[in-house]
Design a protein around this nucleic acid. Structure first.
Length: 608
RNA sequence: GGGGCGGUAGCUCAGUCGGUCAGAGCAGAGGACUCAUAAUCCUUGGGUCGUGGGUUCGAGCCCCACCCGCCCUACCA
């Protein structure tokens, strides 16, 4: 049994999330985590909403509410969406908890003490009316090179040249149009150059493992070549205070949102352990294993826009904490912390050939999707056609197509026809007589799926994995056609009929196990349709809890978390059907979609 | 501008070290069957592998140039 940390990207709480987001980090991480639990590993799956930073403030201002109120509102929506999708977090929390503030500050203090947080004076754009940092992205003006009128502070979209905001002619804030002030300001910078060698060694080792997706490792090594110090604090009043004398008291100096967000993986693990009443348990996933013990593994799931933060910033923070850069140092109270085993990045999902855009209404929110369609239909589509190694396109016609011809007609129908024949002829799982070669062959084929499908999931090839599982489903359908149990009406054939249906039932339950990481909701329905007791795949739930450290966070009080009890997860292997288990004619598990939904949904998009 | 990824049958995509690699699924067409949500099963795939060069006995797979799409570019989470 290996300790496996599933570190899932933290959805940003400036609004509800769309299906492209959950296609990138949500479903893939859940499929992997559920499989790893089934394979007997000790999985800790953590995440939460990321709630600091300028975009939240901007969104809150626009709505005329406080940043915390906006975060509260969006956190609640996101939590509900993720539970409705069946994502099996051990803990889904937030970055505004007292626990998170404490952990982040401990990280900062130790990184600072080890010498990797250097103080520098820079010129920053400030919004005169609010005193907040205006990120380059939020400044626009006339490009000094080509004269383009709407160049951004960091880059001109017209001529492509990289710019410094101070170069812009007629600079103005994109937020409220005012002219930014450029003022000298003190900030802490993470000394990435002093960590570059250690980072390079780590990446070389990761590359040698051969397990990372090629584009992720390539990209990660590439950005290492031009590594620079990077500011880890901001002039902003929404964020975690800087835990140093003279800084803590300044209301407009806060830690950079990305410094704190990635630490969430660690703080959530600690919060999980504390809530369990075993406050040191998190160490099993984070500290090096004792002599002779299996080392913990960690997998980080995200979209490709986050690669930099997970293959550079976060490992650099860990190395700095561990004291493993050029300046040396020693770890703090957390002890030595392990770097990521794998950064598993997805590409982007587009919709009807265009990028998702919340502001333009070209979007399908998770909540809207789940209010009209089964969660497993979405999970199936994302698993089978998601942006695993290259961008992929969600279209309503593909969604209907995949749901109807693969989920309903392929898998759902196999479940249904087998159960119907058993119900009609026996009313319970019949005993098997002597097996013929055709019976043994299909049992072997299905049995081999545990190895082939499992191997593909372990290697993060989920599209291939679910395709392999569906191929096996097809083999079972072929078996029924070949054996023709529906023609065995003669009493002399009753034993043979029982044998075929017994074998078919075994295969259906095996396929159900193979598909369970992808389709947890329907796996429970199939399970009970075949007489199974209780829940097959455990599901997450929402709990409302008190902040553990009410004096240190953003003042959350009671907040919702996602958690669950997953120890009853079935193991990744054949479990023999029990002869005599009652089976009734089932109601169809998957809903077939009328082709008209394609037009309806497209109209809905156009209407928004 | 720099970096990266992709452009393979109507659609979605596989193609690891260059030599049965021109494939799979879906859609379409024909047939079989009837247990099943008109579901299932069988048969049916000649597409300049973005364009133009080059290397090689031989190239989707290597090199060069170009075209198209997408992502990143570090103070956008």
């Amino acid at each position: 049994m290996t300790k496996v940390l599933s570190a899932v990207a933290w959805p940003y709480a400036n609004g509800p999330r769309h299906i492209g987001h959950v296609a990138g980090f949500g479903v893939p991480s859940d499929v992997f985590s559920r499989y790893m639990r089934m394979a007997g590993h000790d999985v800790l799956m953590v995440s939460g909403t990321d709630e600091h930073g300028t975009p939240i403030l901007v969104a809150a201002d626009k709505e005329g509410v406080s940043a915390k109120d906006l975060a509260d509102k969006n956190n609640a929506v996101i939590v509900q969406d993720l539970v409705d999708l069946g994502l099996s977090y051990d803990l889904f929390t937030r970055t505004t908890t007292g626990n998170h503030y404490r952990v982040v500050q401990e990280m900062f203090e130790t990184v600072h003490r080890n010498g990797y947080m250097v103080e520098k004076t820079t010129l920053a754009a400030i919004s005169p009316s609010t005193g907040r940092t205006l990120p380059d992205r939020y400044i626009e003006g006339t490009c000094p090179i080509c004269g383009y009128g709407e160049a951004r502070g960091d880059q001109c979209d017209n001529c492509g040249n990289q710019l410094d905001p101070t170069d812009l002619k007629n600079p103005r804030s994109k937020i409220n149009g005012e002219v930014p002030e450029f003022v000298e300001t003190q900030h802490f910078f993470l000394d990435l150059p002093a960590l570059a060698n250690a980072l390079g060694d780590w990446l070389d080792g990761r590359e040698a493992s051969g397990t990372w997706r090629p584009n992720v490792i390539k990209f990660s090594k590439n950005i290492l070549e031009d590594i620079r110090e990077r500011a880890m604090t901001r002039d902003i009043d929404w964020g975690i205070p800087i835990p140093l004398e003279g800084w803590r008291e300044q209301p407009t100096k806060r830690l950079y949102v990305w410094f704190d967000a990635v630490i969430g993986y660690l703080s959530a693990s600690i919060e999980w352990a504390r809530r369990l009443g075993e406050p040191e348990r998190w160490r099993e996933w984070w500290n090096p294993a004792a002599e002779g013990e299996e080392p913990p593994l960690s997998y980080y799931f995200m979209g490709k826009d986050n690669i930099t933060f997970h293959s550079q910033i976060w490992p650099a923070e860990l190395l700095a904490y561990d004291g493993k850069g050029e300046r040396g140092g020693a770890p703090g109270t957390f002890g030595l912390l392990e770097l990521p085993t794998e950064v598993v990045s997805s590409e982007f999902m587009t919709m009807e050939s265009r990028q998702f855009s919340t502001s333009r209404g070209h979007v399908i929110l998770v909540g809207d999707m789940l209010s009209r369609y089964q969660p497993d239909a979405l999970r199936y589509f994302i698993s089978a056609a998601g942006p695993e190694t290259s961008d992929s396109d969600f279209t309503w016609s593909d969604f209907v197509q995949r749901t109807n011809s693969e989920l309903v007609a392929g898998w759902g129908n196999l479940v249904n026809r087998t159960a119907t024949m058993i119900a009609k002829n026996f009313g319970e799982v019949p005993a098997a007589g002597p097996l013929e070669p055709v019976d043994q062959t299909v049992l072997d084929t299905v049995g081999a799926g545990f190895e082939s499908v499992g191997d593909l999931i372990r290697r993060h090839r989920q599209r291939a994995a679910i395709a392999e599982a569906m191929r096996i489903v097809g083999e079972v359908n072929k078996y029924l056609t070949a054996t023709e149990p529906y023609k065995m009406k003669d009493p002399d054939q009753r034993e043979r009929l029982g044998t075929v249906l017994h074998v078919a039932a075994q295969c259906v339950l095996d396929c159900n196990t193979l598909l369970a990481p992808f389709l947890p909701f329907s796996s429970n329905q199939v399970w009970s349709a075949y007489g199974g007791k209780g829940e097959f795949m455990p599901m997450p739930r929402i709990e409302h809890v008190e902040d553990l450290d009410p004096d240190d966070g953003a003042g959350l009080g009671v907040y919702p978390i996602i958690t669950g009890e997953y120890s009853s997860t079935p193991s990744w292997e054949r479990r023999p059907v029990v002869v005599g288990t009652p089976v009734a004619k089932p109601t169809p598990i998957f809903t077939k979609l009328d082709p008209s939904v394609v037009e309806e949904e497209r109209a809905r998009l156009a209407g928004e």
